[in-house]
């Protein structure tokens, strides 16, 4: 029981740290800057008949 606590608590801390770092990266890499264009690109696709 003690051993499990001493093992699991640090692991959960490391996970929380990893999530925090990933979140930090995502914000400053601009992942949240434009949530619109990629989602709508399929609507702007050229749906005309293929010419070749």
């Amino acid at each position: 029981m003690d051993a499990a606590l001493y093992l699991l608590l640090p692991i959960s801390l490391v996970f929380a740290l990893g999530i925090g770092v990933a979140f930090w990266w995502a914000i400053f890499a601009g992942q949240f800057d434009d949530t619109d264009t990629a989602a709508k690109s399929i609507l702007g696709d050229d749906d005309g008949p293929r010419l070749d």
Binding site: G20, F23, I27, F28, D34
Partner: peptide, 26 residues
């Protein structure tokens, strides 16, 4: 997502604020 026409300084402020908010909730 911040407005597209936001100035650089404001955009940075917004990013920092979002990072602080998310990390505080985590």
């Amino acid at each position: 997502s911040p407005p597209k026409v936001l100035a650089d300084g404001e955009r940075k402020k917004r990013r920092h604020m979002l990072a602080r908010l998310g990390l505080a909730w985590l």
